[in-house]
Amino acid sequence: MTSIRKELIVATLNKIVSLTDYKIYNDINKRYEFQKKTILDDKSLTKVERMEAINSLTIYYDYQKVLYNKGTKRLCEECQQICFATLYCEHCVRTYLKNNFSNWTSGNYYIDDLIQKCQLESLRPDQIIEWIPYDNLQNIEYISSKVYSADWIDGRYYIWDPELEQLKRFGMHKVILKRLINVNNANENWFEEAKSNLTISNKYSGIVRFYGLTQDPSNNKDYMLVIAL
């Protein structure tokens, strides 16, 4: 099997952005088609690498369309709703998450409400806020004040499976845990910090990516932010 040169794919994606004239390609669809053609014409990539690059481009294209509510639409064959995304249907993803509400709880009304609202506004399958049970974390190691590393056993959601009509998980991967000061009142600072970080991360792909919240049962029942490593 031919290996994929990921660093070359990243370089190609960066290059096509710099080559894009935003005055000529002045909407999302035009930019996508130009960038896609540029990748297909790039002979420095193998066929497999070109397909991988186009897939990455399409993931971002879908995200932009759903985020800004503009671009080419299509009819989802599963739910029969008009959607923006190409590789998934944003309505199907949100419905799947909503139908799963009864299968989890943090035990805190305010946290459940926050996470549910984030999930109902999810933009892409690999950027979903969750309640993460503490027993789904292992090999927890202290790094510094209030900060730990851990292995998330199931891992984050990363893709929508149209055949099974469900989200698929990435599998075990490393995460960072940040301990929040536990209080009984959800209007206090720890909750506002969690709300701000999760709400922003749910919408924008920033430098710091938040996966959700968990609760340490052994240390004052502190809540902890689960963050990408």
Rank of each mutant, 00 (worst) to 15 (best):
V66H: 06
N189F: 12
N108Q: 11
T38C: 04
L67Y: 11
R179Y: 02
L40D: 00
E188H: 14
I159C: 06
I159G: 00
N219W: 08
L229E: 13
L45R: 00
E192F: 09
I4G: 01
I111V: 15
L123E: 01
L114S: 02
L123Q: 06
Y22Q: 10
T199A: 02
V10K: 14
V183M: 07
R169E: 07
T86E: 14
R156P: 01
Q35S: 08
D216E: 09
N220M: 13
N187Y: 08
R94Y: 08
N29R: 06
C89L: 07
D21L: 00
Q116N: 13
S205K: 12
R31Y: 00
N100D: 14
A11F: 06
Y134G: 03
Q64A: 10
T58A: 10
K221M: 07
Y88W: 13
N69D: 14
E193C: 10
K168L: 15
L19K: 09
I24N: 06
R124H: 11
N219V: 05
I59N: 04
L137E: 02
S201N: 05
S196P: 01
I115M: 04
K73V: 12
V147K: 15
E7Q: 13
K47P: 02
Q81Y: 08
S201C: 05
L120R: 00
T12Y: 04
N99R: 14
D27W: 03
T12D: 07
Y68M: 08
T86G: 03
L180F: 10
I111N: 03
L57K: 00
Y60I: 06
L57A: 04
I54Q: 02
E141Q: 15
M172I: 10
L8K: 14
C76K: 10
Y142P: 02
E121Y: 05
K168R: 15
E77L: 15
S144I: 09
R156Q: 11
K178A: 07
K174I: 05
M1L: 12
E163A: 05
G212H: 08
N100E: 13
